[in-house]
Amino acid sequence: MKRPVWPLFLLLTAGILLFFVLNLMLGTVPIPVREILKALAGDESVPVVWRNIVLSSRVPQALTATVAGAGLAVSGLQMQTVFRNPLAGPSVLGISNGASLGVAFVVLLSGSLGGVALSRLGYLGDVAMSLAAIVGALSVMALIMYVSQKVKGNVTLLIIGVMIGYLANAVIGVLKFFSAEEDVKAFVVWGLGSFSRVSGDQMLLFVSLMLVLLPLSMLLVKTMNLLLLGDDYARNLGLNLRRARLLVIGSSGILVAIVTAYCGPIMFIGLAVPHLCRAMMRSSDHRLLMPGTMLLGAALALLCNLVARMPGFEGALPVNSVTALIGAPVIASVLFRKRKENVQE
């Protein structure tokens, strides 16, 4: 019944490497591998244009996609486990709506109040947007964590999260109505999601933050395995439910908050990857699922980024459309196949 999982881990790692290299090679200007390696090694003989493209555009973008994909996927897995709901994802608790609200406040109000359209401020505007997103996401998360200590049922908490999301969206709607047209456009573009917005120092900060947070999230595997049994059984096995819920939701929320701050709301990866991973591994053991979703999330994000940048689209395709376009059929087919297997058993 169980198949060994190490070939899968190997395959996923190979997939990440392959997509990463392809991400560096392909794009509007294709660059051969040898030249990329030379550019990375700091060789002066590589044409300046190519060097610039590789070092200041493609490498940051690929790195961002890798860690963002991993983070979103892990966050989705944590939400699905703690709520025991297959439809839960990073966006269900309103955390990404919180980020949107933060950005909306900064982008949309700066124009009306300060008289300067933030969209024209460039770098400073980007930093302000990231900060606003983090503040927005973390405040919604703090609210959710507070509520999670007060209400008992998971379903109640889930519904409250969804309601907070709607509330945030409503406020955003009002803000949009009163803002300048170009600010609204800047906000909409942010909402499409992108791995290319992060560059330079910010990229380093983002990647190092995620490299700290992702291993930290691994510390919760035993807790999450116990949560699978349901609240009462988990508690009887010595789990402190309140603390467990706080830790898992907190870890998941921080991951989403940071990814959303830097990349905008990226849909689908958080919802889809855990399902895909469970189906591929045929396991519920989080000791396997956590690293599995991390790798798969990273690979899928790289693939989506690659497709979004395919020649012909010229970077015009928003990542969010690609994640859904690739993700939805894959998920549907995996689930369909699984259903058939279950019938045969």
Partner: peptide, 18 residues
């Protein structure tokens, strides 16, 4: 409990969690 993709041995093993 509504658990997918967990073997009997794994579930009984969770009983060792304490």
């Amino acid at each position: 409990p509504d658990i997918q993709n967990m073997t009997v041995t794994e579930l009984v093993g969770l009983g060792r969690a304490p």
